[in-house]
Design a protein around this nucleic acid. Sequence first.
DNA 1: CGTGTCATGTAATTTGTTACATGATTGA
DNA 2: TCAATCATGTAACAAATTACATGACACG
Lengths: 189, 189
Amino acid sequence: MALRHAVLAALLDEELSGYQLAKAFDLGVANFWHAQPQQLYAELTRLEKDGLIAGREVVQDTRPNKRLFTVTEAGLAELEHFTTTAAKPTFVRDDLLVKVQATDHIDTATLIGQLTERAAFAKAKIELFTKLLEGMRAGRTEEDFLRHGERIGPYLTCLRGLAFEQGNHDWCQRTIAVLRKRQGTRPRR
Amino acid sequence: MALRHAVLAALLDEELSGYQLAKAFDLGVANFWHAQPQQLYAELTRLEKDGLIAGREVVQDTRPNKRLFTVTEAGLAELEHFTTTAAKPTFVRDDLLVKVQATDHIDTATLIGQLTERAAFAKAKIELFTKLLEGMRAGRTEEDFLRHGERIGPYLTCLRGLAFEQGNHDWCQRTIAVLRKRQGTRPRR
DNA sequence: CGTGTCATGTAATTTGTTACATGATTGA
DNA sequence: TCAATCATGTAACAAATTACATGACACG
């Protein structure tokens, strides 16, 4: 039941609709958690039923109506309680890594293609995160912002996201280079 | 159905028992995938039924008997096919990041405690991976090993694991420092 | 004499993914 | 006019976690 807490944490900053939350959790702008829209709509229903968030209907004439959610007192208490429980380590589950593990036994060209794709994906994220961080700093230096800023949670998690994608990018590039060099010297299979 | 391929990739190097696989996948020595023992035993049964791996019984007198598994021709073909399908991007799901996202609203001391724990965990993994890499290189330089080594898949995925844990460690330390500095200047809540 | 390792599972439950469904509006 | 965006769901299925179960040997 960690999705609940991720949703609560996301709603701390602003009132959001299921749709807005879904975008953030799906495209990975929410660096702390990933989830599909369907999961979020379901979780929002449960959270509201349990009184941890409160929704209010916003009637729109040009767009379909939507419901904006806010964390309640009980929701905040729940989050606080969650924080006191031990955090379990994160574990990797990555298709691409499985494929790289299997290199020497599989086609190198295909692998290089996928590594290139992943590197491009990482680069796009790096640029996005860099801009997001810049926006949050709003002119201040990082040092200043982190010391005196009102709300630094999202900034800190975004920093982790940035470093993660930089790690991805670097590793992909390095791996591509290694595989290319071998292609010449050692014929595969 | 990606666990299948992770298991196949792990069995490429050596014949392993369910128990040995479980240890690798559970404690995260298998940097490409994580899974619990129960999942692995179930998957091994399915893989054998589908003819992608072959098991052989090893009778032991001092220890319970065990089954060692090898990848079959069909298994290798399956892996090869898997490699040609597009790899989906990995997504983060991390309790600790959820908690950091919620900082400014929750108790800082507890958070610092958990970040410290995570940093120590990361450091232990860094040391483990560093040694594993050293072992695989077996005296050669990294450049030399990666160019001429027989089997570099596990080395490459281990490199990613190492970088990941270094990222974790650095970020935890930085976050701890930031939170500590604020504790003095801005009283919480 | 208790704790940890070796060794393998079954069953119940919780999460997460994929497929399907609807319908208006905005921009290319 | 075609695709994308806004907006919310339901239902079926696959994957992962948690709990439960067994039993011998090794180490301190």
